[in-house]
Simulated assay, not measured.
Amino acid sequence: MADPNLLTARHDSIFTITFNREAKMNAMTASFLADLKAALASVRFDDRVSVVVLKATGKAFTTGYDLDGSDWILSQNPIALKGKLNLDRDREDIKGLLEYWWTLWKFPKPLIAQVQGLCLSGGGELIAMCDLVVAADTARFGHPAGRDLGIPPTVFLWPLLIGLRKAREFLYTGRLFSAAEAERLGLVNQVVPLDQLDATVEALAADVARTPANNLAILKQATGRFYENMGLFASGDQAAELDAVFHQSETFVSFFAKVAEDGVQAALSERRKRFG
C-alpha cells in the first residue's frame, strides 16, 4: 500500500496534520486535497480540539499542485489534452477549487501553518487560508508558475496581505523570496531557526488554545469579515475567471505539450531556460 498523503495526531487540544508526500515535495493532488478536507472535517465539531497545526515532512512544506497528471486536481488533465482545455469547463473547475479554499477560510478553529522549506504556488493559497504562519529561516515562498501557467484564484490574498506593489512584483517576476522578507512584509507571523520550529509552533498553539474555543471562533469570524466586506469572495470569483483565460495562453499550452511529450522535468528545464 502507498503511504498516506497525511498523518494526523492529537495532543491535548492541538490537532496536527502532517503532509506525508516527502518524495513528491508534498505536491498537492486531488486525493491530497480530499484527505485534507476530510481531516479538518473530522475535528470541526470536536470540542476536544481548539487549534489545528499544518506541517510537513521533508524539505518542502509544499511545492504547489502536482504536475505529473496522475491525480490531477481538476477534471481536465492538461497533460492528456496537451494544454488545450475547454474554457467553460476549466472556468467551472477553477471556481470549484476556489470554493475548496474558502471552506478552509471559513473553518471555525484557528489554523497554524508550520513552514520549514519551500512553499510555492498552490502552497501560497494554503497558507493564505491559515490564521497564523510560523516559518523556519530555511523557508522560501513564491509563485514561479505566474510567468506561464496561471494565477491562483485566491491570488494568495497577496494584495491584501503584502500590498499591491509587492504582489505585482512577485507575480510579474516569479522570483522566490525568503522567510525574512515574508516576515517583513507581513506574510508570516514569525521566523525562527529550523531547529526551533517545532517547539515554537507547539508553544504558540498551546497559547492560542488557552482561549476558549467558542471565543476563538468569534474572533476569527470578526477579523475575517473585514476582508469579506471588502469584496474578498467577489475578487476570488473574478480571479478564477482570469485564471481560466490564462490557461488558454500559448505558454500554458506549450508547457503541457512539452510535459506530454518529454515529461515534467523536461518542461521545467525548458521553463528555466526561458525565464531563469
Rank of each mutant, 00 (worst) to 15 (best):
Y65Q: 08
K59D: 15
K24R: 05
D198G: 00
A60H: 06
V264R: 10
E92Q: 13
P4Q: 07
Q76E: 15
T200C: 15
F275H: 08
L85Y: 06
P78E: 01
R147P: 05
F32S: 03
F233D: 08
C130H: 07
F170N: 00
V201I: 11
D3K: 07
G146R: 03
L149H: 06
S50P: 01
D243Y: 08
K84S: 12
L111C: 08
S70G: 15
K59F: 13
D148S: 13
R210P: 06
D35W: 06
A222P: 06
G236S: 09
L98F: 08
A182P: 07
D12L: 14
T154H: 02
G69R: 04
F256T: 01
Q265I: 12
F45L: 02
G58I: 00
F156A: 10
G276I: 12
T103C: 02
N20G: 04
A113G: 05
R184D: 12
L36Y: 07
C130G: 07
F15T: 09
N5Y: 11
K84A: 13
A60Y: 08
A56M: 02
S254P: 05
S269W: 01
C130E: 03
L171H: 10
K220V: 04
C119Q: 03
I14L: 09
L219Q: 12
D35Y: 09
A213Q: 06
G58C: 01
K84L: 04
H247I: 14
V201Y: 15
A203T: 01
M28S: 11
Q196G: 14
N20P: 04
Q196Y: 09
A217H: 13
R44T: 12
A80E: 14
V188T: 12
G142S: 04
A145R: 00
R225L: 15
G122A: 11
I151K: 13
D12E: 10
D71Q: 03
L185R: 07
F156I: 00
V259T: 08
Q114S: 15
V133G: 01
I162M: 07
P110C: 01
